[in-house]
C-alpha cells in the first residue's frame, strides 16, 4: 500500500538517523512512502499552548496536502507529529465549528480538508499491525540474540486514548523486539514521559525524570533503550552526560531507534545505520551482539528428570 510520509522537522537535523532507517526499513518491508510535498512543522507541543486555531490550521495544511497527493493514510515516525496529526483530524470531525473555522483558514491558501479523509498512523503501528510482527520476524536474518533491549514508548504511542496501543501498558514494541530475537524485560516505566521540553525550560525537573528512566533500564541489565520518538531519543541521549555530572552517576546507556535495531536484524550493515549519531556510543552494544553471534550459546539440554513444562495460555513468549 502507498502511504504519505511525514518526516517531521527533527528528521532534518537531530533525528536524521531515525528518518534514514525508517525509510530503509519501510523499503525492506515493501511499504511505499511518498513524502508530503512541501510539508510544514506540526507545531510540536508549543503552538497549541499559545494560540489554538492557528495550531489546528498549521497541522491541517499537512493533512490537506497529503489528501491532495491521493493518499488516505499518512505515516509519521515521530510520536509528537503523529499525535498532532491524529488529534487535529479527530477534533475537526468531533466539532463542526472547529472544522468550519479551520477550513475557512485553509481556504486562504486555496486548500481544504475533510475530517476523516487522511488517517494518521505511527510508523510502529503500521509495521506491527499492517505488516505484522510475525511477518517481520520471518524476515530476520541476523537475530538480536544476546542483547537485552528495554522498550521505551514515551507518551504518545498510547495517549491520548484511542491510539493503537494501551494507554499505560503498551505492548507493540515489546512484541516487535522479541520477534527480532532480543531479550525484552518488563520495563514498568515504558510509557512514562521523557520530560519533553522541560530539558529546555526547567532542566532540573527534566534531569530527575530522565535519571529514573535510565536507572531502571540499567538495573534491568539493558544493553540499550529502544525508542520510537525523536524527543525521547534527544532527551535521554543528549542530556545523559549532563545528568551524570548533575547526580554524580556514570550511566552509559545507548538510546537507539527501533528502526535501527530492525535494520540490523533484517541484515543491513551497522555502519550504514547512523549509530554514531548517538552521543552515548552504541559501540559496546554492537560488539556484544557481534560476539554473541560469533559464538552462539548452545541451548541447555532439558534434564530427563524434569517434569514437562506446561504451555502458557496465550501461547507465550518464552524466547
Amino acid at each position: 500500500m502507498k502511504y504519505a510520509y511525514y518526516p517531521g522537522c527533527s528528521a532534518e537535523s537531530s533525528a536524521s538517523a531515525y528518518d534514514a532507517t525508517s525509510q530503509m526499513v519501510a523499503a525492506a518491508l515493501g511499504l511505499e512512502l511518498e513524502e508530503i510535498k512541501d510539508w510544514n512543522c506540526c507545531g510540536a507541543t508549543e503552538y497549541f499552548s499559545i494560540d489554538s486555531l492557528p495550531a489546528y490550521a498549521l497541522v491541517a495544511r499537512n493533512l490537506a496536502l497529503a489528501g491532495r497527493q491521493g493518499t488516505s493514510e499518512v505515516i509519521a515516525p515521530c510520536s509528537a507529529c503523529y499525535v498532532n496529526l491524529k488529534k487535529v483530524d479527530e477534533r475537526m470531525g468531533d466539532y463542526p465549528q472547529l472544522n468550519s473555522d479551520v477550513n475557512e483558514a485553509l481556504a486562504a491558501g486555496n486548500l481544504s480538508y475533510t475530517p476523516g479523509s487522511v488517517r494518521a498512523r505511527h510508523l510502529l503501528d503500521v509495521i506491527c499491525n499492517e505488516v505484522g510482527c510475525d511477518a517481520v520476524s520471518e524476515k530476520v536474518v541476523r537475530p538480536l540474540a544476546g542483547l537485552t533491549l528495554v522498550p521505551y514508548y514515551g507518551c504518545y504511542i498510547g495517549r491520548p486514548e484511542g491510539g493503537f496501543d494501551d494507554v499505560e501498558n503498551p505492548q507493540t514494541l515489546d512484541r516487535l523486539l522479541k520477534g527480532l530475537g532480543a531479550t525484552v524485560p518488563d520495563y514498568s516505566l515504558k510509557s512514562s514521559c521523557c520530560g519533553g521540553h522541560m530539558t529546555q525550560i526547567g532542566t532540573e525537573v527534566a534531569l530527575g525524570i530522565l535519571r529514573g528512566l535510565i536507572d531502571l533500564a540499567a538495573k534491568l541489565g539493558a544493553d540499550a533503550m529502544v525508542v520510537a520518538c525523536p524527543m525521547c531519543q534527544l532527551n535521554l541521549d543528549v542530556y545523559q552526560n549532563q545528568l551524570n555530572s548533575h547526580f554524580g552517576t556514570t550511566y552509559r546507556m545507548p538510546i537507539v531507534y527501533f528502526t535501527q535495531m530492525m535494520a540490523l536484524a533484517l541484515g543491513m550493515e551497522a555502519a550504514e545505520l547512523k549509530f554514531e549519531e548517538g552521543l552515548v556510543p552504541a559501540g559496546p552494544m554492537l560488539e556484544k551482539w557481534q560476539a554473541a553471534e560469533a559464538s552462539p550459546q548452545p541451548r541447555k539440554k532439558k534434564s530427563k528428570k524434569a517434569l514437562p513444562m506446561p504451555e502458557p495460555l496465550d501461547g507465550g513468549d518464552s524466547g
Binding site: D38, A108, L111
Partner: peptide
C-alpha cells in the same frame, strides 16, 4: 533553517486563523 516553498501560502492560512480566533 530550512524554508518551505509555499511559505506565503502558510502565512495566509495562519493569519486567517488568527483573525478567526
Amino acid at each position: 533553517p530550512t524554508r518551505i516553498k509555499a511559505v506565503r501560502q502558510l502565512r495566509n492560512i495562519l493569519n486567517k486563523a488568527k483573525e478567526i480566533g
